[in-house]
């Protein structure tokens, strides 16, 4: 029996008799998505639509937009939304630049350098997030090593407090995100044929120009994946702003934690969480739209 006949008869079998059985294959993933994300998310939305009494996490059985109104009109929350958006944009752009050039450098070099670059990008993933984030605190402190170096080379006149502060929060977040971006972009880079870069150089493009004209359009899918990781992560950032930021570096997640655990205002926490998810979703859409405008973008639009 030829393969195609086997395949055909198999298909008929599946269509006629085993259609329901085949659908069972979706059950585990459906359960996981529903139980792990959809169901808790529905509870979250429900809580965000409850009233916020004092002395209880939320008012059971009530249905009101009060929490959203409270959250949106609060000066503190407006500041937090503004900060989170700026923080996400800044860290995403910085991480994209670093990851792209790091991956490009790793791709272009050979021998030991290549392995050192690739290995050292993966190494941080082997350490717990909290530990490696907190490790920046002494480095960026006023009497830390970064200040020592900058003072030594007279870049700065007197010690600067990078952490706790905005610089620390940004550096920590970029550092945490970059390895994922490197992996996403490197995996696309290795499919580029080097002769295309040579052709661009040969036709009069400088090194930078040939990167911009030939390499960048080809790695757009990798940059898109990195952008999705960076935007969602940085909008919801908790560890870096909490451990390395000062009082002003207050992100969505930091405030939500405070609502949940310190102030026991779950309705407000729920409302702010919904806003955070919306911000992340809109951020991803904007990033993909921007990438779609570029030369290589046609592929992430799905032709």
């Amino acid at each position: 029996m030829s393969t195609s006949r086997i395949r055909d008869s198999l298909r008929t079998d599946l269509q006629q008799r085993d259609f329901d059985k085949r659908s069972l294959l979706f059950v585990p993933i459906a359960l996981l998505v529903f139980g792990g994300f959809v169901f808790p998310f529905l509870i979250l939305i429900r809580i965000s639509l409850a009233g916020q009494p004092s002395g209880a996490p939320y008012e059971e059985g009530s249905l009101t937009l009060e929490s959203f109104v409270h959250v949106v009109t609060s000066d503190l929350i407006q500041y937090i939304i503004g900060f989170s958006i700026l923080y996400a944009v800044t860290t995403t752009l910085l991480a994209l630049v670093v990851a792209t050039f790091y991956a490009y450098a790793a791709w272009r070099t050979s021998g030991v350098t290549k392995y050192v670059l690739l290995f050292s990008s993966i190494l941080p993933l082997l350490t717990t997030l909290a530990v490696k984030t907190y490790a920046w605190a002494p480095l960026l402190a006023p009497n830390g090593n970064v200040n020592d170096l900058l003072l030594l080379f007279s870049v700065i006149g007197e010690p600067v407090q990078f952490a706790p502060g905005l610089v620390g929060a940004v550096v920590g977040q970029v550092y945490n995100m970059v390895p994922f971006g490197i992996l996403a972009i490197y995996s696309v880079l290795i499919s580029i044929e080097e002769s295309k870069i040579e052709a661009a150089r040969d036709l009069g493009a400088s090194r930078i120009r040939s990167f911009y004209e030939v390499v960048l359009p080809e790695i757009i899918p990798g940059i898109a994946v990195a952008s999705i990781i960076f935007v969602t992560w940085s909008v919801g950032a908790y560890a870096a702003p909490q451990l390395l930021g000062g009082g002003a570096e207050r992100s969505y997640a930091v405030q939500i934690e405070s609502y949940m655990l310190a102030e026991l205002q779950w309705a407000f926490a729920g409302a702010l969480s919904v806003l955070m998810l919306l911000t992340g979703a809109i951020g991803v859409l904007i990033a993909l739209w921007v990438l779609n405008q570029s030369e290589g973008g046609v592929r992430i639009a799905g032709q």
């Binding site: 002769s195 295309k196 052709a199 290589g296």
Partner: peptide, 19 residues
């Protein structure tokens, strides 16, 4: 290469795929 008055036609043609 970008300053030389030479141009190469490559074996695999090396056309820019997104142009």
């Amino acid at each position: 290469p970008h300053q030389r008055e030479t141009s190469i036609v490559f074996q695999d043609w090396a056309l820019f795929p997104y142009k």
